[in-house]
Design a protein around this nucleic acid. Structure first.
Lengths: 193, 193
DNA sequence: TTATATTGGTTGGTTGACCAATCAACAAAA
DNA sequence: TTTTGTTGATTGGTCAACCAACCAATATAA
């Protein structure tokens, strides 16, 4: 069984197990044993590959950011006009992968951790700034820098808000209604004056 | 020192200490000892008044909901027109008390807990439904039930989103810019057709 | 080819710290 | 004296981190 080059495989297995564990056991009561059991691996391996529980969490957060960023970037590549690129960002934000309950739970946990863990905060700020920056750029056709900035801010807020509301909604999270609301908002921002 | 009728005083002291403790120690590492020290009282009293750590958390969540609801209701009482009532809801959502870092931290924790704790989820759903219901009612002048519903949903999402973005924002959270964005959004919803 | 060393990967028990909850004892007010 | 409020030590349990030993594969030497 022990072949060389297990490190990336194991790290990924633990990260994915961590996301699932956070979802069904909750972050507060999460133990390295839970994650190991979920991954079907020994508890000691967690420390072998990550050094500490905290490092596993950071790696998990980074994984989420990378996946999310990649999804957006991929969609942006196929979009030609600014309007299409705005839709691409919406699509990347409300696609099925991002709306998986496990992923939502992990993201929310991420936000809470950012309140006390500087490294998590740093990562999350990068994500926020990049999103705003993308949006501002696609809204550049608006008359003033001011209106573009407000359009970007409000659009970003609405993304996060719709996402947050779906965390608890009785309705299982399907992205279509969220997308419709977002598209309408974008249009109204672009129409204005 | 021990006088009769301490129960409500102590309960409130612990709840407020819990909010502060959640903010500066983080919810994950929160101990009843932390809260007791923050309140300047003995650790054993926590269990005397709440029975368990979990019950203290529930009481704290309930406290947040009551304070928030009271703030909104008070402002609604002074508002005459639907447009004024919409502004009243915004004002209640972005007032100084709600933007205190300690309060924001506690609310966010609340959301995470809702993922795994049914009672917290129940409380949070009540708040969400009431907010949407209020908004829908004030948007009733819109042509169709459909447009009012969408206006309510998007407004609620934007409130939550702006609030969530302020959780981490480099900029210290001052509500004025959020209010300006919200007012603009409400106007554009009401103007539309 | 066979024996041996080395490396990468893995396990599960142990340890030391910490915490929620309990409780026995005490102090002040009624 | 009784009731109400309060304390701080104790207990039982849990967890992160550590570690000693093991296993399988490859590389090297005889």
């Amino acid at each position: 069984m022990p072949k060389t080059g297990m490190a990336p495989v194991r790290r990924r297995a633990f990260v994915e197990a961590a996301i699932r564990s956070i979802h069904d056991r909750g972050f507060v009561d999460l133990t390295t044993g839970d994650v190991a059991r979920e991954a079907g691996l020994s508890q000691g391996l967690v420390h072998h590959y990550f050094g500490s529980k905290g490092a596993l969490i950071i790696a998990t957060m980074r994984h989420l950011l990378i996946e999310f960023g990649a999804g957006i970037r991929e969609r942006l590549r196929e979009a030609k006009t600014p309007r299409e690129r705005l839709s691409a960002i919406m699509d990347g934000s409300f696609c099925d992968e991002q709306l998986q309950p496990e992923v939502i739970s992990a993201w929310l946990t991420f936000y809470v951790q950012a309140l006390t863990e500087p490294e998590v905060r740093r990562l999350l700020l990068i994500y926020q700034r990049r999103l705003i920056s993308n949006l501002r750029h696609e809204y550049r056709q608006l008359p003033t820098r001011e209106t573009a900035e407000i359009a970007a801010e409000s659009t970003a807020a609405m993304i996060d808000g719709l996402w947050l509301r779906r965390v608890l909604g009785d309705t299982e999270p399907h992205g279509e209604s969220a997308m419709a609301i977002m598209e309408a908002h974008i249009d109204s921002q672009l129409e204005a004056r």
